[in-house]
Every structure is written in structure tokens, then in C-alpha cells.
Write a protein that binds this DNA or RNA. Structure first.
Length: 790
RNA sequence: GCUGGUGUGGUGGAAUAGGUAGACACAAGGGACUUAAAAUCCCUCGACUGUCAAAGGUCGUGCCGGUUCGAGUCCGGCCACCAGCACCA
């Protein structure tokens, strides 16, 4: 006795040992089977790490540690996604270089992580702001540029009024900037865009190849928003045809009018033919001022006078309107309106008194529907009418089957300083030319201020003047930088070969390590980072850099940790829990254990400062088992079932993200052993191995105290024996009419018939049966008997 | 509105090839140890009812119905909450 659990001493001892060993360093290429475990690398913010970050890191640390024990060559790396606005905004305010702030924050994060005993391979640490890293971000951009997937285009962009910067669609949440919460307005600007839409179909199709939770797959599919239909070419009184996109081509005989988006180019082209062009332009101007939400309720519009449209299928002339419920960047920016079968079109005609006809007759009783008023489609059901009209328009060359996506191209430039410079040189003679001299290093600045015109701070420096690599003439550099999401779109590839200066990672090591076997991260990245990185990886696959088309074989997502008040943790709410404080008070092992024990890993859960003590008591109980150790190389018969069950439960639960029940089964086992009064060395070895991934410090110390010889990190993960999973003694439950009445034990398994007999003769059962007749007997082998009586 | 998910004690949560609801833990209450406190250990802990005490009884997994010998679990219909998307033609 007297050997008290001193977590401070134990934890610093083992963290030191790990620091000076190569135990967590993955071999670059090996004959062993590989396992690549990945967590999202953090943005090293000024606030520091909070307990929410740890949930993901600890969970996959458990997986990584288990895999090492299972004999895999494990890669579990960590790095820093360090470009981004907060550092730049801080720089603006306090006039400190973002580089300095970033370094400070990284050091702080790293120290916090090291206190938790995570088995990261620190030799592979990457930092997106390091020129030797972003050299390859720029390299990938260059390849995208060469393939025509990165272009600079005049487009309508989301403009954050506070950050003075464009945002991707994914970064605008409810009309405000995702990061700062300021209003976002639409602006037309020349911007770099990446053509992610070219990959839309593949990004949907290849979800079949990966093991992601349904909610993640669904959300991505939803975001990409595929809809199948047709483009149909309508005629017009000015002679030029235009295409509409529709998912309901079978309703074409019901078209009462056509609606253009107010911004549509067709209107400009034929402005002189439009008699009320002033009114139309006024409407356009008003629509552009409206926020997205304001466009949603009342449907407004203007009828275009002087031009009519011609329905290609029946030659009917129909009026043309403009209305802001038609979006210029969706489909073709023109819709054919079928008021009888579309709610929005119906709302619209209420106001403008347009005549329309119904083309589908629905029988309210049978629920069957058939086509009417539709010439050659009459009498058909909707589905076959659709097929028939699609064939018809294709054959008569008035349209074709077409698939439309909601996904927009990725707006890739930011007018900020703290990002990867885009390696493009603008030459008057040669146009846009790639700068092949990578990395193109971000120059140091005195001032980080963004100009009021919204240009990047880089435009105010001499850095922009250069020579054209093609013709040698005077040229200027691109001053926009890449968005936050660039560096994180491929970082998992760099971990594989982090110091290679010739290629982003060697072919050999990429082939060995990719794809990532298990990637855990937050749901909030589903339509951002996760989609972007899949896109980049597919591109790298297309140009032969990687061997697999998908980067992550398996993705899981943790629930967020809420504050003790049940609200989201945030500085402004004052409910942030710093892991340092928890580690100070309880130690790293207890912190890790509680992070995993607090609830269902995939659901959000509030941090309960009182709940932690349960985990503390558990580790103390475990620690005190060393006082009752007895010699022995066997699991004692009395404990065999408990041990085998615990091995099974812990092994399976780790794979299924059920860390909470894995821990409770270990708590159970420790209580059993304690009640039993002694633990053999062999039993201690099993228990300690099971606990090691969860609480690595205390278990390593126990391992050491017990004098077990091999390194616990690579010791063999225990296996259970099916023979000992069931108790030899069975509790039998007797139900009468489905209600539990009697319970008793039998020593060994008996056939069903025998069991029913035993139950019938049970004293208490006989009592219950008095004056009743058995109608039916149901038996679940060695478990339960139900008598149905009258 | 659409898509996905969730709903179980005072609390976090267990339990799905349909078979003992509430594992494990927190909080609470009682007791032991102690001069005392902390720590530790033991007991109780869904509701109602019952008894000196027990035994026992009835109800109980958001609501209503169904299937079944038996439903937290399956089916139909609601309600509430969370997340994402949202005039997507």
C-alpha cells in the first residue's frame, strides 16, 4: 500500500519517454500492413485548444494505439492549418506580423496537445504557411491552371463588408459571413474560380466507393444537388432561340408563359425590341438590391412587351416575363412556366392573370394520373409521358436530356495578405503566365491594411513588379491570395513525405499510405473541406499523382461538446473549457477517459465538471489493484467469462465509435476483480492492455511496475475465446402472458423441452398457474419461457 | 417546405436477428469509519400502490393506433426538438 496514484509524476515520466523515443514514428515504407489514421488539423487560433478539439484527437488516438498493438505500421500525424483571417485581423489591430502570431499560437497548441499524451508522429508535422509546404499548394494550383480548371472570370461574388473580401458560397451562412458575422452583399468582380462543377457527377458517384456515415453522404449529395431533366429550345419573335431547363418536360403542353431571370443577357441583347425596357431595367435594379431572403415570399415581375416566345412542341406563342424568383445562375436562367403543376408558377399567375391549362388529370380516389390536353401524350401516365417527350424532343432536335447541378464553381481568390500567393504573372503581351519559380514566397509587409477598393494589401508593394517569364517584358504579379481552404485540401498527402523537396510526396510512399484509412472530423466541414479535398484529390488522380480516386476510405464524425449550460462553447458565452485546467486538476488520462465516456461519440454532449470524478475514481480503483496482485499466468476460471466479455466488448466498441460503453465495460471488470479479491499477473496484463489506448500513462506505468517485458505500445492486443463468452450458469426468466413472474438459475444448458418442464414444476410458477390452462408455450433457449394462459 | 437525425429516471447515457427496460456513471438520501472534515467503503434511488417490515400489485421508453405469446426495438399516423438545404425550375 501507500503507492498513491500520482498522475503528475506518472504522466510527465511517460510523456518524456515518448518524446525521446521513435515509438509513434511511422516507417515511410514497410513490409508491415499500413494504417493511416487522420484527424482534422486545427487552425491555431488565439483562443487556444479547447476540450472540443480533443474529442476527435483522443478518439482516433485510441484507434491508432489499438492498431499498433494489432501489428500495423500506423501513421497518426498532426499539423497546422495556419493561414486565415483571424491572424490577419489580429495583425491589423496590433500591428504584429501574422507569422509571429501564428508561431506563438502553434507553440501553445502543441504544448496543450503534448500534455494529453496523443501518439502523434511529430516528425511529420506540417504547417500550411511554411513556404516548403505551400510550394506544393501552388504547384497543384499551377496544374489546375494548365488544365483549364482554374480561371479568372468576371462573376457575381459574395462580398463580406467587414473582412473586405470575397467569400465562397460555402462560407456564407444565412446571408452573413461565416467567420465574422458581418453582412454579405453581391458584387461583380474578376475572381479566380476553380471548376469543381466539372467534377460534380464524379463527386456524387464515387460516394459509393467510400465508407461515410449516411448523414455525410446525403449532405454532400444535397449540396451538389443533381436534378435530371431536359434543355428545351424555345423560339422567339426576334428570331433567336433560347433554352429553358426543366425537370418536368412532360408538362410542356401546359406552358402558359416563359420567365427570364432579370439579369439575363438576352434582355440586353434585344433591349431595343423591348417596348418597356425602362420598366424592365428598373425591375432588374431593384432585384439586385434585394437580399436573398427578400426574394422568397412575394412573387413579383414584369411582362416584356414586344417579344414573345414560341413553344417548340405546339407552335403556340406565349408571353415572356422577368421575375426575380428565377435565378440567373441556375439551369439556363430561364424557366418555362406551367402554373397548373408548379406551385411557384401558380403563385405568379395569380397576380398577372395569365390563362393556363391543366395537362395532368389526377384521380383523387385511385391516386392515378394521366396526361390530358397534350396531343400525342394523352392517356399516358406521367413517367412514360416524360420518356416519350424526351425521345420526341431529341429526335426533332428541339432539346435534349440534361442534368443540372446546384453546386457552383469554387471562388478561389481572396483580397487578403495572409494566404498562399497565386503564382500567376500578368503580362500585357502574353496574358496570364504561370510563375514556375516555386515557392512564390509571400513578401513581408509593414502594413496589413486592405485598401478601400478591396484590393489585397499586396498591391501596395513593389513585390508586384516582375518580368514576364515568356517574353521578358515588364509584368505584374497576381495580388489575390488563395482562400483558407487551399492548404487543407491536400495536407494528408504531405504528411506521407513531409520534407520532400522534389515532389509533393514520393510516388512510392503515396502508393503505400493512401488512401487514409480512417478520417474523423466535424460535420461542419461536410460541404467545405471534405468536398474540396475530394475534388483536389480526384484532380491529382487524373494527372497521375495518386493511385486512388478517393482520399478517405472511411469518414466518421464526432458530436460537438457543449458548455455546461448546454449551449455551444464560445468565448462570448464564457463557457469554454480549457483542457489545461482539466489536466491540471485530474490528469491527462482522466481527461481522455471523460472525453470518451461522457456520451455517444457521434452526438453532441454537454461538459459536466462533476461527471469527471467517475473517471477519476475508476482509475484510482484500477491503480489500487496492484495491491492485490497474485502470481499466475492464467485467467482464473471464476473470472474467465468476465475477462473474455470485456475483451470482446472493448475490441468491438472501439471499431464502432462506442467508446463510452467500452469504458463502462472496463469499469465493470475492475469492480468484479476487486470484489473477487485478487488479480493474477496475467489478468492484470490483459486489463492493462485494454486500458492502454484510453489511458496510456497509467497503464504504461502499471505495465512497468508489473515488470512485463516488451514495450506496451507494440504488445499484442488480446483476443477473446468464444467458449468463455457465456456464463455456465443461466438465469431463466419465466413469463406468464408476456409478463415477467419468476426468475431462477440453472447450472447448465438444457434442451427447450426439458426447460419448459422445469419451469412448469417451479413452485412459484405452479402457484401462478392455479386454476388456469396453458394455451401456448414459447421458449427462448436457455433464457426465457413464456406461458400463455387463460 | 425538403433531406437526415433524435425523443428512455433528477442528469449524461445503456439495451436492436423483437425476449428481464434503466448497464455504467453523476447527483441526491441514509449508514460505517473519523474529535471533525475530506477521502474511502456499504445501502437506497422510474412513478403510483401496499406493509411494522417484507412479499406483492398497477403503470411506465414523446403521442395515437396496429402486428405479435411478447414492442424502447417492427408497421401506419401525428407531435416536438436538433442539424443541413431552401423560390434549384
Amino acid at each position: 500500500m501507500g503507492n498513491k496514484y500520482d498522475f503528475n509524476k506518472i504522466e510527465s515520466k511517460w510523456q518524456n519517454i515518448w518524446e525521446n523515443s521513435d515509438d509513434f514514428h511511422a516507417e515511410s515504407v514497410s513490409n508491415k500492413k499500413k494504417y493511416y489514421v487522420l484527424v482534422e488539423f486545427p487552425y491555431p487560433s488565439g483562443e487556444g485548444l479547447h476540450v472540443g478539439h480533443l474529442r476527435s484527437y483522443v478518439a482516433l488516438d485510441i484507434v491508432a494505439r489499438k492498431r499498433r498493438m494489432q501489428g500495423y505500421n500506423v501513421l497518426y500525424p498532426m499539423g497546422w492549418d495556419a493561414f486565415g483571417l483571424p491572424a490577419e485581423n489580429f495583425a491589423l489591430k496590433h500591428n504584429v506580423h501574422p507569422k509571429v502570431i501564428t508561431e506563438k499560437n502553434v507553440a501553445r497548441f502543441k504544448a496543450q496537445l503534448k500534455r494529453v499524451g496523443l501518439s502523434f508522429d511529430w516528425k511529420r508535422e506540417v504547417n500550411t504557411t511554411d513556404p516548403s509546404y505551400y510550394k506544393w499548394t501552388q504547384w497543384i494550383f499551377s496544374r489546375l491552371f494548365e488544365k483549364g480548371l482554374a480561371t479568372k472570370e468576371d462573376s457575381s461574388v459574395n462580398w463580406c463588408t467587414s473582412c473586405k473580401c470575397v467569400l465562397a458560397n460555402e462560407e456564407v451562412v444565412n446571408g452573413v459571413c461565416e467567420r465574422c458575422g458581418a453582412e454579405v452583399v453581391q458584387k461583380r468582380k474578376k475572381q479566380w474560380i476553380l471548376k469543381i462543377t466539372k467534377y460534380a457527377q464524379r463527386l456524387i458517384d464515387d460516394l459509393k466507393l467510400v465508407d461515410y456515415p449516411t448523414r455525410v453522404k446525403q449532405q454532400q449529395e444535397n449540396w451538389i444537388g443533381r436534378s435530371e431533366g431536359a434543355r428545351i429550345s424555345f423560339g422567339s419573335s426576334v428570331g433567336e432561340n433560347f433554352d429553358v431547363f426543366t425537370t418536368r418536360p412532360e408538362t410542356i403542353f401546359g406552358v402558359s408563359h416563359v420567365i427570364f431571370a432579370p439579369e439575363h443577357k438576352f434582355i440586353d441583347k434585344y433591349a431595343k425590341n423591348i417596348k418597356n425596357i425602362d420598366e424592365v431595367m428598373r425591375y432588374r435594379a431593384e432585384a439586385s438590391k434585394k437580399k436573398k431572403e427578400e426574394r422568397t415570399d412575394v412573387k413579383t415581375g414584369v411582362k416584356i412587351l414586344g417579344i414573345t416566345a414560341k413553344n417548340p412542341i405546339n407552335g403556340k406563342n406565349v408571353p415572356i416575363f422577368v421575375s426575380d424568383y428565377v435565378l440567373v445562375d441556375h439551369g439556363t436562367g430561364i424557366v418555362m412556366a406551367v402554373p397548373a403543376h408548379d406551385d411557384r408558377d401558380f403563385d405568379f399567375v395569380q397576380k398577372y392573370k395569365i390563362d393556363f391549362i391543366s395537362v395532368i388529370n389526377e384521380d383523387s380516389e385511385t391516386g392515378k394520373s394521366e396526361m390530358i390536353n397534350s396531343e400525342f401524350l394523352n392517356g399516358l401516365d406521367v413517367k412514360s409521358a416524360r420518356e416519350k417527350v424526351l425521345d420526341y424532343i431529341t429526335e426533332h432536335k428541339i432539346g435534349e436530356r440534361h442534368v443540372s447541378f446546384k453546386l457552383r464553381d469554387w471562388i478561389f481568390s481572396r483580397q487578403r495578405y495572409w494566404g498562399e500567393p497565386i503564382p500567376i504573372i500578368h503580362c500585357e503581351k502574353c496574358g496570364m503566365v504561370l510563375d514556375k519559380n516555386l515557392p512564390l514566397v509571400l513578401p513581408d509587409l509593414e502594413e496589413f491594411r486592405t485598401s478601400d477598393t478591396g484590393e489585397s494589401p499586396l498591391c501596395l508593394t513593389d513585390w508586384i513588379h516582375t518580368k514576364c517569364p515568356k517574353c521578358g517584358g515588364n509584368a505584374t504579379r497576381e495580388t489575390d491570395t488563395m482562400p483558407q481552404w487551399a492548404g487543407s485540401s491536400w495536407y494528408f498527402l504531405r504528411y506521407i513525405d513531409p520534407s520532400n523537396s522534389n515532389v509533393l510526396a514520393s510516388k512510392e510512399s503515396l502508393d503505400y499510405w493512401m488512401p487514409v484509412d480512417w478520417y474523423n472530423g466535424g460535420m461542419e466541414h461536410t460541404t467545405l473541406h471534405l468536398l474540396y479535398s475530394r475534388f483536389w484529390h480526384k484532380f491529382l488522380y487524373d494527372i497521375g499523382v495518386v493511385k486512388f480516386s478517393e482520399p478517405y476510405a472511411k469518414r466518421t464524425s464526432h458530436g460537438i461538446i457543449l458548455g455546461s449550460n448546454g449551449e455551444k462553447m464560445s468565448k462570448s458565452r464564457g463557457n469554454v473549457v480549457n483542457p489545461n485546467d482539466v489536466v491540471d486538476e485530474y490528469g491527462a488520462d482522466v481527461t481522455r477517459l471523460y472525453e470518451m465516456f461522457m456520451g455517444d461519440f457521434e452526438k453532441s454532449a454537454p461538459w459536466d465538471p462533476k461527471g469527471i470524478v467517475g473517471c477519476k475514481r475508476f482509475l484510482e480503483k484500477y491503480w489500487n489493484l496492484q495491491n492485490i496482485v497474485v502470481e499466475g499466468n492464467m485467467v482464473r476460471d471464476e473470472l474467465k467469462t468476465y475477462f473474455n466479455r470485456a475483451i470482446k466488448k472493448v475490441s468491438e466498441d472501439i471499431e464502432n465509435l462506442k467508446f463510452n460503453t467500452a469504458i463502462s465495460s472496463m469499469m465493470d471488470l475492475v469492480s468484479r476483480v476487486k470484489d473477487f479479491g485478487s488479480i493474477s499477473k496475467c489478468e492484470m496484463k490483459i486489463l492493462t492492455t485494454l486500458l492502454n489506448p484510453f489511458a496510456p500513462h497509467i497503464s504504461s506505468e502499471m505495465w512497468f511496475l508489473m515488470g512485463f517485458e516488451e514495450n506496451i505500445i507494440f504488445s499484442k492486443w488480446p483476443e477473446f475465446d468464444k467458449k468463455f463468452i457465456n456464463f455456465s450458469e443461466h438465469e431463466i426468466v419465466v413469463q406468464i402472458n408476456g409478463k415477467v413472474k419468476v426468475k431462477f438459475n440453472i447450472d447448465s444448458e438444457v434442451p427447450d423441452k426439458k426447460l419448459i418442464e422445469i419451469c412448469k414444476n417451479n413452485e412459484k410458477v405452479v402457484d401462478f398457474m392455479k386454476g388456469k390452462t396453458i394455451i401456448k408455450e414459447i421458449c427462448v433457449s436457455n433464457k426465457l419461457v413464456n406461458f400463455v394462459v387463460r
